[in-house]
Design a protein around this nucleic acid. Sequence first.
DNA 1: ACGACCATGTAAGGGGTTACATGATTAG
DNA 2: CTAATCATGTAACCCCTTACATGGTCGT
Lengths: 182, 182
Amino acid sequence: MARSNRTEYAILGLLAREPMSGYDIRNVAEEQLGHFWHESFGHIYPVLKRLHERGWVDKRIEEGRGGPPRHEYSITDEGASALRDWFGEPIEPMPPRNELLLRVFLGRFADRDDLVARIREYRGVRASALARFEAIQDQIDRESTDHPDHTFWMLTLSAGVHAARSAVAWCDEALAELEATS
Amino acid sequence: MARSNRTEYAILGLLAREPMSGYDIRNVAEEQLGHFWHESFGHIYPVLKRLHERGWVDKRIEEGRGGPPRHEYSITDEGASALRDWFGEPIEPMPPRNELLLRVFLGRFADRDDLVARIREYRGVRASALARFEAIQDQIDRESTDHPDHTFWMLTLSAGVHAARSAVAWCDEALAELEATS
DNA sequence: ACGACCATGTAAGGGGTTACATGATTAG
DNA sequence: CTAATCATGTAACCCCTTACATGGTCGT
């Protein structure tokens, strides 16, 4: 039941870096956390409200700028302390749900061509992710080696590279196997 | 909104292998799909009911055996056809949610020791998974090379091995990095 | 004029987990 | 005697996504 709310801490963490609006949070999440995290508007706004009620974030409203007023949120001391505590807690693993592997496992009931097509699709996605990660690695290394987040960015990128490389390797192995025994 | 119901096909696929009860499905899922898929009782029973109403599975009730009667489900022709169709559909990727990487990304706000502890925990989990997968690979190769599912089992296991190996490699890299700049 | 971007939020609803309720059989 | 296994199912509940509602500004 408890199912700790990971979105709360994701948002809190982003606000620890700099004050932002819900809209900004969404964009930052997409651009910078995109390969390992996701947040949608429909969830961000209610969570932000909750965080505010709890006193973990402050809210400042920018009025008079056409369209709805912008709500800028910033982390409070209480929020920062909650964030620090969170890092101390063990991570409860998510129950796995890998649909590609489910299909492969049940592959006996599939048309061989369908199976191959799915793996090829997946290989394409992962190969282009790999190229993207490597490009960003180069870029960050050229531009911002002294940023306080540098080490952490590089580590998450490296995780992406490792995962994508092994995914591509597995796809190649699987495709070879399935095409050999076609 | 659609959000195709992956549980339906997981269950259907297991019933395609052999007729089973909800209880059996849970056990098979845990033992054989455990490393890439998960199902809980609270979800299996309602889905099974839905599948039956839709005519994708048949139900046979074994009465008089102490405790609640056992419901044995088997796939119908309609169900088998729906399953085959499913393999033809592209896989809609799940939005990613990797809490360890989220924490690493926000690592600037963490105690270094907490971060290291989380990565070590994760490394332990993945390293023991790796050992388990390799043991099962050996076992299957010794015992059931002629099983109709052999190729597919080996492919899912190999995916597990690839993923676990790359996870362990990343952890070692990350730990070295974090301990060097402590 | 039109689309992209800025910006907030609500409503509906599905998918899935956990806890609860119930109870017989079997192995140690 | 007790714990594990067999076996079904419901209720509560949360997390999160998608779709909808609304509208101003800016670039082309």
